[in-house]
């Protein structure tokens, strides 16, 4: 898709999300802009408090209210600004055109309803499909996410499924209405590593098949390298660097991205080399340092870093970074 003349499937511009805390208002997401093309996988990476999950939630206007609210920005999906829709119109988008997969499948499933009921529900809600036909479609979906013995499993309850199987069901439900885009927020963090690989492979395969875009929210740089086409790196509510996966891993330019890469041990590397940690701790959103939020931990911090907030600037075909320091190479 890269380089095509059509406009992106999703365009986020200047998205700012504010939360009320006991220490005043904080910007959990601050002026975030990003694009997603049809059929592409965008990974949003960052540590806790970086704003990656809040960004995901606000795309579907699911930010917990009243403590959180979207205070600025546009979320243009398929030519339509989702932030201007009323609740009824927004419900038609959720699950139907954009679906979401959460980290903990058990808390996204109703423990008192059978799986069949929950998987068939979107067909009857969004398409008005008769119930018997909806159940038939549900079985087909469970087959597609390779749940063995799917006919019998329709009558089972969520607690009778393993964590991996539940996440397969969540994927099935997300795919039910053939959405143009799926947002997956740490979809495998609660799962074992062999199951994580199965689930992410399945998700990638199915989104490729249906040409759905995928936004993958994760803290795992390995997962990003394996599955993402493009990457946004977030720190303290802002995107600090974005580019193709190759840009980010081979030509990382922002000191935070570079430091993050140097701090993780790799399976395929010599173990005798010492890790290079990032000194200090991520800042509290309620007490962000002035200027670039990373500057107190940055080895390259220079004069303007503590005074002004750097904006994202183009440094390659699809590669942008927000940093004043030139020599960060």
């Amino acid at each position: 898709m890269a380089g095509s003349m059509t406009s992106p499937l999703l365009q986020v511009r200047g998205l700012t999300v504010q939360f009320r805390t006991d220490r005043g208002f904080v910007n959990a997401v601050d002026s975030v802009s990003l694009n997603v093309d049809a059929g592409e996988t965008l990974a949003v990476v960052g540590e806790s408090g970086s704003g990656k999950s809040v960004t995901a939630l606000s795309l579907l206007r699911l930010v917990p209210s009243p403590q959180g609210r979207i205070v600025a920005g546009e979320v243009i999906f398929d030519g339509q600004d989702l932030l201007t829709l009323d609740d009824r119109q927004m419900r038609a988008v959720r699950g139907n055109r954009i679906a979401m997969i959460f980290q903990e499948p058990m808390s996204s499933l109703n423990p008192t309803l059978t799986m069949g009921l929950q998987v068939a529900e979107p067909f009857s809600i969004h398409d008005g499909t008769p119930w018997a036909a909806a159940l038939g479609k549900a079985k087909t979906l469970l087959d597609r996410v390779r749940i063995p013995d799917s006919g019998a499993r329709l009558a089972a309850y969520p607690h009778q499924f393993s964590g991996g199987m539940r996440q397969r069901v969540m994927i099935a439900m997300a795919l039910a209405c053939r959405p143009r885009m799926i947002i997956a927020d740490e979809p495998t963090t609660a799962l074992d590593v062999t199951v994580q690989a199965q689930i992410l492979d399945l998700l990638k395969e199915l989104t490729q098949e249906t040409r759905s875009a995928l936004i993958l929210i994760t803290h795992d740089l390995g997962v990003v390298a394996r599955y993402a086409d493009r990457v946004c790196v977030m720190y303290a509510g802002r995107i600090v660097e974005t580019g193709t996966a190759r840009d980010i891993y081979e030509r990382a330019s922002h000191p935070y991205t570079r430091a993050l890469m140097a701090s993780i041990p790799r399976l395929d590397r010599d173990t005798a080399t010492r890790l290079e940690p990032i000194e200090g701790y991520p800042p509290s959103l309620a007490q962000l340092p002035p200027g670039c939020a990373f500057h107190p931990r940055c080895r390259f911090a220079a004069d303007p870093c503590g005074r002004r907030v750097p904006m994202l600037e183009k440094i390659g075909e699809r590669h942008h970074r927000a940093c004043f320091v030139d020599a960060a190479v």
Partner: peptide, 14 residues
């Protein structure tokens, strides 16, 4: 299997 399941943070190596 365990090693194969763990992604390496490097798209080229992956």
């Amino acid at each position: 299997a365990l090693l194969a399941a763990i992604p390496i943070p490097d798209p080229a190596a992956e």
